[in-house]
Design a protein around this nucleic acid. Structure first.
Lengths: 327, 327
DNA sequence: CTGAAAGCGCTAACAG
DNA sequence: CTGTTAGCGCTTTCAG
């Protein structure tokens, strides 16, 4: 790689002039500029981002931290983020944390080192205190899953309410014994959705039994299938299940289909998120639509504001119950 | 962020010593080391990657360039890449190129600027000549889709053969009129799979008609559905279709289900890749399994070798025909 | 309008 | 074993 020095020498000017041509062309005489531009072309020079960022202490990259891209839920969010980021002239870097602290730390270091101008996280694993500290110094926004604290802005939906509504819908359909396929209650959305589910049951004076609760190891088709398997083996006479994620619901559906259990007549199933594949399952899946794309766009808006030093408010977006064939 | 200077001052040593503690601890006296480590802790210092890379001209990041994460095909590859990279002590950065040159260039710049030690690309858009030039200077490996040239190592499967086999399988099942749902023939795999399809037809003395060929705008469920729609509207009396990607096949399946067309009796469908969702479609999808995870692992092996200056050979992996209910 | 020079944070050669 | 110092590639005063 040629450096700015090489270009300067080749064009017979100083490095400062080359730098000016790069960053503020109008401050350089027409003739000099042409000369420099020609040299840049001939040498196929492109500025070294490290040197530049080191000096400027800023970059045009945004970090996007998510647990795993295998969860379709993040797809549309990332699309929204990318589109919006591009509008602002930023590029994004996708980072899988696997909800593991060590991995997350590597990416936070990128942020600390000015390799990225800011970060959007969809699943903060790091402890609350450290997170607050990081957010104090670096532009930082939470999307979907979040930690509630001052100065840690987030965009999300009302999970508790959505879960309440979807459970109530099942109850109104006449279901009396409704299972819950959840994930680790380490996650806020898991706790919230469980709360909503319980609130609906309570309203209908139904006391949930212990055998109604299931927890998946992770958010994947396979885990969904596995949970449904153990659920069926327990013979709890459930007539419906509410899975807190479409991935789990689709996995569950697969197990039901394999066993020849009729959905929705023998077992109704609802999911959460409205990922694309929910429309092609058999039967198509009733679910709660999250405004994923919009969430992505908004998190970028918020992040850019943060970068520019403005204040940003938390945002809670609307969800929507999508009723289809599985109920 | 505290710098190495701050740590040095705080510990009462020189920056060189701090640097040594960081990079070669055994070369520092026990006592001095402890002192420095304490200061590092107290100041919550972590080295600036930019400064380090700028100096070292190397990093521990690998770039992974793919068109879009929404194509499930890349999922398992990325998993394989990530697992293996971690073994070698590298982290990965996911970059979506959308098969667009401008975006790809941004990421190649990261490579040029030593922000990453090397790159794996799954879809080179850049022109052949430039690519060869880049590969001359920077560690670079192709996975799945590739450009055939010296010094541009790749790992892939034999697409032509796989397509030939799957088409032959359909022919043996008695299908006489088999449609092809392809993507732009700009892509090598599109050309290869078409070739294989044509070779099988020829072997059975079947002359394909013009109305048998369809091209999707991109690789997505929606495009698959759209193509199937126009295919059905054309009334070509096809009894089977071969889609060059599972995403397209699943989209096609959706359209068939919507119209109440019986699969496989009225229309057989085969896909390509064996992404996870092919097992939960209705009916489950016949497809060609690619060893995605392994491809990911191998590309990292190759890349690390490249980084270490060793020679690497191209690799063609085995595929497998997975027969399920859609045929 | 242009050049000289300092310095961003770090590592490595060189002295001691 | 430790400190001094040059320099990675770049931008930005400060002079001219």
């Amino acid at each position: 790689m040629p450096t700015i020095q090489d270009v300067a020498k080749h064009a017979g000017v100083s490095v400062a002039t080359v730098s000016r041509v790069l960053n503020n062309p109008s401050s350089v005489a027409e003739l000099t500029r042409k000369k420099v531009e020609l040299s840049i072309q001939e040498l196929d020079y492109s500025p070294n981002i490290l040197g530049r960022n080191l000096r400027n202490a800023k970059s045009r990259m945004l970090l996007v931290l998510l647990p795993k891209i295998s969860n379709q839920f993040y797809l549309k969010i990332v699309e929204g983020i990318e589109e919006k980021a591009l509008e602002y002239g930023y590029n994004i870097l996708l980072c899988q944390t696997h909800s593991k602290l060590e991995r997350e730390k590597v990416y936070f270091d990128l942020l600390k080192n000015q390799l990225a101008a800011g970060a959007i996280t969809m699943d903060p694993t790091i402890d609350r205190k450290t997170l607050i500290n990081i957010a104090k110094r670096y532009p930082f926004v939470q999307c979907s899953e979040y930690v509630n604290a001052k100065n840690l802005p987030y965009v999300t939906i009302d999970s508790e309410l959505a879960a309440y509504q979807v459970t109530k819908y099942l109850l109104k359909q006449g279901h009396q014994r409704i299972g819950l396929i959840n994930v680790s209650e380490y996650f806020l959305y898991a706790r919230d959705r469980k709360k909503g589910y319980l609130r609906a049951l309570e309203e209908f004076h139904i006391e949930p039994e212990e055998g109604w609760f299931y927890s998946a190891n992770d958010v994947s088709l396979e885990s969904g299938q596995q949970v449904m398997r153990s659920l069926l083996n327990k013979k709890q006479d459930l007539t419906a299940v509410f899975a807190v994620s479409d991935m789990l619901a689709i996995g569950a559906l697969k197990e039901l289909n394999t066993r020849g259990i009729d959905v929705p007549n023998e077992m109704a199933v609802v999911g959460f998120d409205k990922i694309e594949f929910t429309s092609i399952t058999y039967p198509s899946l009733t679910t709660v639509a999250q405004p994923m794309y919009k969430m992505g766009e908004i998190s970028v808006d918020m992040l850019i504001k943060k970068i520019q030093g403005e204040k940003v408010e938390d945002i809670v977006l609307e969800h929507e119950l999508i009723i289809r064939e599985s109920t």
